[in-house]
Design a binder for these strands. Structure first.
Length: 843
DNA sequence: CGGTACCCTA
């Protein structure tokens, strides 16, 4: 069911709304930098001017800083005040990640400073607020796993005699349980002197948090009496681990059916993907006369968003208004996302704008809307000016920068995140690792891996997947394999990453091996294999795997189609291509940039340039590759003027800038239409205007262009003045120019040059032997061939193939490997015999 | 001492 929602809000829904003026116009003007801590530190400084700060002033400052511990300036502010330099340890380290890892220390320093200020204070001055402050610090320490600082506070409170309060003892118990400090936890349990419902509840929920479901159940069963909290803890705990049936077993037997336990069950359904059942349970709740509260509504609204049920959502909104909860922060937060998922972006914005009070989730929700729509600039603006950021907001930005081709920015944000004391979760780590993978920054990736191993996240699937990606991209496939082997719970995605790594490193057999033994495959697995065979130019295998994929009932995705179409373009097979085009339209992929581009290329290579143009013009989004394919298609199909016109149009009207391949097409077009001077002009402006350094292939095209126009001496000068070794093809172009324009002297010169190169260059050998053959110098031909054999030079052979009943048969020259090779040769002999009378026409 | 909304890997 989760998948259904994901599929439902595709990007195409939003492109319409992006242009909606009512959404565009009102910019988010409510931003404003808000950092109360800075204000408090300022007030504190002014009180120093008046004299030394008193108890109330110090306590107040601690409270403010603790309450706003998440804010960026707070740690710095308090640190400066206490004379602790938070950045002392980090300025000397230049590596961004080493820098980040030190963030943990800043964060510990922060709490050390807080305690250093708190401990000398005398509680008698205002006992009540002193205790309140301690409890608030303790809560933060528990959330942030600062158990060392927690035990310092614990000892201090014992000494001061504040610890007698029962509820404080419970909070320490929870802290110790969460940090798995069983000795300390047992100590506190002992002090409670026997059975206590609350202590037992704490034990149960700690076990549930750690995943020990059986232990939790046992503790629950052993309890002589239970309260409503015991039941709800169990219900929600089982839901958290996907045990919906067990959870409902307890729900139905729960003697205290209050809102909280109802909400736990409803929410559990929604979180496990059973939103419809969640809604049904909500209706039952209404029937039973229990009044839903804000938490219930947030879960139910989320269920409507997951189901895409706008009407139901609006009915529930009616109920919300009736109960007076429409201005509640959490409820509004869920409504923002609900409207966004319904593509009602204006409504989502209105909910946000009309909120009297916003929290970090509200900001993250509105941030995510911009991120999802691809408006990265505006998203960044919101992100920078948000009053508070949590790991969700950070990870949304880090992920999106990485995916949009800005891995450096992704890494920089990650560094800042850790520096500001926000603890990254496994998702965050995997985002930043995949950004590093696209930068091929193995060293930095390894230091993050070190951190992951140290903190016990080294075997996590999502992090490991990104690590596999990183090592494969850097060519360290063995290391990728080590990471893969260590994953505790391998899922399909991790297998896919491994297969794709092998394929990327040219080990298609290994990829095939893993593909065949993986326990479960999805369409991505199949696509990876198809793309792998495509990279290896084994086109018959491409279609073989595709047919097998269809046979097992797996549905191809967009990337499958672009690989298949690319294979069609390489063969080229118009029939297969058209067939795939039809299927793509049926599945709604024809508007996709990658599929569209592959179609353009396929039709162009198959000679149907009209169809290419039709597709190009109908594409709603074109990227650099689409333009390149179209320009190349036009130029190579002989539509040179149109190709040049399109290039100019692109420069004028699109944000795409010219690349190497486009300039090759332009030079090709100029060469084939006799526009030599225009071509030279383009070539000379490559570096100055477009910032592209010409490659050997560009030089070859210019040589070809000059030769075609008969400007042979110019071509010779050009080839001699090249800053690097010319391609063999450049010499070939010059030679064929000599042949056309009967320049025998020059031809002889070129041949001499080639014979010098022939030692190492198989292409030069072939060219040379062709020259000798054409002038009847058979002895020289044999010498060249002998040279090739001695030096073990091999030219990659030409290959031809035919397509029969969904199978591609390929043949190399002198190739007898086909199973029906003998029969084929017999037929060929027969055909040759029958064609003999026409032979004089073929020469 | 129990229940929530925002982010989620190829």
């Amino acid at each position: 069911m989760k998948n259904r929602t994901r599929k439902w809000h595709t990007k195409s829904n939003f492109s319409i709304h992006l242009d909606n003026p009512s959404f565009r116009q009102p910019r988010l003007l409510i931003y404003g930098k808000f950092d109360p801590v800075k204000r408090w530190v300022k007030e504190f400084e002014s009180s120093i001017h008046k004299g030394s700060p008193n108890f109330a002033c110090k306590l107040n400052t601690i409270n403010q800083c603790t309450r706003n511990a998440h804010l960026s300036g707070s740690k710095l502010g308090l640190g400066c005040w206490l004379g602790v330099s938070f950045f002392s340890g980090c300025t000397s380290i230049s590596s961004p990640v080493a820098h980040s890892m030190d963030g943990e220390d800043h964060f510990i320093h922060f709490w050390d400073s807080v305690l250093k200020t708190l401990l000398p204070l005398k509680p008698e001055k205002n006992f009540k607020s002193y205790v309140e402050t301690c409890v608030s610090i303790l809560k933060n320490l528990t959330n942030q796993w600062a158990v060392t600082q927690g035990s310092v506070l614990h000892g201090h409170l014992l000494k001061k005699g504040v610890f007698s309060e029962r509820y404080i003892a419970v909070k320490f118990l929870i802290m110790y349980l969460n940090s798995r400090k069983s000795a300390e936890a047992n100590e506190i349990v002992k002090e409670f002197n026997g059975f206590d419902v609350i202590v037992h509840n704490c034990l149960i929920s700690a076990n549930l948090k750690g995943g020990n479901l059986d232990k939790a159940r046992k503790l629950f069963d052993e309890m002589p009496e239970r309260n409503e909290v015991s039941w709800t803890a169990l219900i929600s705990g089982f839901m958290r681990y996907g045990k919906v049936e067990e959870s409902m077993w307890y729900f139905e037997r729960n003697p205290y059916q209050n809102v909280v336990s109802w909400t736990a069950a409803i929410c559990g359904f929604v979180q496990n993907g059973f939103s419809f059942e969640g809604l049904k349970l909500f209706l039952k709740l209404l029937e039973s006369g229990v009044r839903p509260n804000k938490v219930t509504f947030t879960s139910v609204i989320r269920a409507c968003a997951e189901l895409g049920d706008f009407k139901m959502g609006m009915s529930i909104l009616g109920l919300i208004v009736k109960t007076g909860l429409e201005s509640n922060v959490s409820v509004s937060n869920s409504l923002i996302t609900f409207f966004f998922r319904m593509a009602e972006i204006t409504l989502a914005r209105r909910v946000f704008d009309e909120m009297k009070e916003r929290d970090v989730v509200s900001w993250t929700a509105i941030l995510d809307i911009h991120v999802e729509m691809g408006d990265l600039l505006e998203a960044r603006r919101i992100f920078d000016e948000m009053p508070e950021r949590n790991e969700v907001a950070w990870s949304a930005m880090i992920a999106r920068y990485g995916q949009s081709g800005y891995p450096e920015e992704s890494l920089e944000l990650f560094r800042r995140m850790v520096e500001e004391g926000v603890r990254p979760n496994v998702f965050c780590f995997s985002f930043v690792l995949s950004a590093l993978a696209s930068m091929k920054a193995m060293g930095t990736g390894m230091s993050i891996q070190g951190h992951l191993i140290k903190t016990g996240m080294g075997k996590d699937v999502s992090c490991s997947i990104s690590l596999i990606e990183l090592y494969s991209k850097c060519g360290e496939i063995k290391d990728a394999r080590v990471v893969f082997d260590l994953i505790l719970q391998k899922n399909v995605v991790s297998w896919n990453a491994m297969i794709s790594g092998y394929s990327l490193n040219g080990k298609i057999e290994e990829a095939q091996k893993y593909f065949s033994i993986m326990p479960a495959r999805n369409n991505v697995s199949w696509s990876i294999m198809i793309a792998g065979y495509l990279d290896n130019k084994e086109f018959d295998k491409v279609f073989e795997v595709y047919n097998e994929m269809l046979l097992v009932g797996e549905s191809p995705n967009k990337s499958t189609f672009s690989s298949l179409l690319c294979a069609c373009a390489s063969i080229p097979s118009l029939e297969k291509g058209k067939d795939l085009h039809g299927k793509a339209v049926k599945l709604g992929f024809q508007l996709d940039v990658f599929v569209g581009t592959a179609l353009i290329d396929m039709y162009a290579k198959a000679g149907d340039i009209e169809s290419s143009k039709l597709i190009f013009n109908s594409m709603p989004k074109k990227n650099e590759i689409s333009w390149t394919a179209m320009l190349q298609g036009l130029a190579e199909s002989g539509f040179v003027e149109e190709s040049l016109k399109l290039f100019q149009e692109m420069e004028r009207s699109s944000s795409v800038s010219p690349n190497e391949l486009m300039l090759l097409s332009v030079l090709f077009a100029c060469s084939h239409s006799g526009l030599v001077d225009k071509g030279l002009e383009y070539f000379n402006s490559m570096e100055t205007v477009y910032g592209i350094k010409p490659k050997a292939r560009h030089y070859t095209f210019v040589v070809d262009m000059l030769c075609r126009a008969g400007r042979l001496s110019e071509a010779e000068d050009f080839i001699e003045s090249m800053p690097f070794q010319p391609e063999t093809n450049a010499w070939a172009a010059l030679l064929s120019g000599c042949k056309t324009y009967k320049k025998e002297v020059l031809a002889e010169k070129v041949a001499n040059k080639l014979s010098k190169m022939a030692e190492k260059n198989p292409a030069a050998c072939v060219l040379l032997s062709n020259i000798y053959a054409s002038s009847g110098r058979w002895k020289d031909v044999v010498n060249v061939r002998k040279l090739m054999k001695e030096k073990n030079l091999k030219k990659s052979g030409g290959c031809s193939w035919v397509e029969l009943r969904n199978q591609v048969h390929s043949f190399y020259s002198e190739d007898g490997s086909h199973s029906q090779s003998a029969d084929i040769r017999d037929i060929l002999e027969l055909l040759r015999f029958e064609m003999r009378p026409f032979q004089r026409f073929t020469d």
